[in-house]
């Protein structure tokens, strides 16, 4: 068995350890006085920037209706097949609305394709990252959970208008 020669042997100072310990302690001490980046979640909440892709939500207009016209493009483009849309007719001018709109959050991979494809700017990625459920059924979000008033989403919509 050949004896493997070390690439670099420790010199005398290093062998003494103490200078090395001092070096390490200095680094630690230096960092103690730098600003903190760790957050005390959940006491402290992270407020993501507009470019953040949290759970997809539906935009709710001021007149209480959703923007979505149930075209089904998001459902078609979704690589994870997370979205199910059932259209129906409405008396409103836009003719068509989603009678049922469900996103299976267990399937969703937060890719944002749905947002990108939507012709109506009706589905956008929110800043919501807190998704908790205890069973499969709860993970299916219906319109009740998906609809979010447009004011709360303005940030993202502006971002999309500037950068999409």
């Amino acid at each position: 068995m050949a004896v493997k020669k070390r690439a670099k042997d420790l010199n005398i100072l290093e062998k003494l350890y103490i200078p090395e310990i001092v070096k390490g302690m200095t680094l630690t001490l230096k960092n103690m006085f730098r600003p903190r980046v760790t957050m005390e979640y959940p006491e402290q909440k992270f407020e993501p920037p507009a470019s953040y892709r949290g759970r997809p939500v539906l935009v709710q207009e001021q007149d209480a209706g959703e923007r979505c016209v149930a075209c089904g493009l998001c459902s078609r483009v979704c690589p994870a097949l997370a979205i199910e849309v059932q259209a129906n007719e409405t008396d409103r001018e836009k003719e068509r609305f989603p009678e049922k709109f469900e996103i299976n959050m267990l399937r969703c991979i937060f890719c944002g394709f749905c947002e990108e494809v939507c012709p109506e700017e009706a589905i956008v990625m929110s800043k919501d990252y807190e998704l908790v459920y205890t069973n499969r059924e709860d993970a299916i979000y219906g319109k009740d959970k998906l609809l979010v008033p447009v004011e709360q989403l303005q940030d993202r919509i502006d971002y999309l208008r500037n950068f999409k």
């Binding site: 016209v69 149930a70 075209c71 493009l73 836009k94 003719e95 068509r96 012709p119 109506e120």
Partner: peptide
């Protein structure tokens, strides 16, 4: 109006 059109 392809998004609301059945023919799409």
């Amino acid at each position: 109006d392809c998004p609301i059109c059945d023919e799409a």
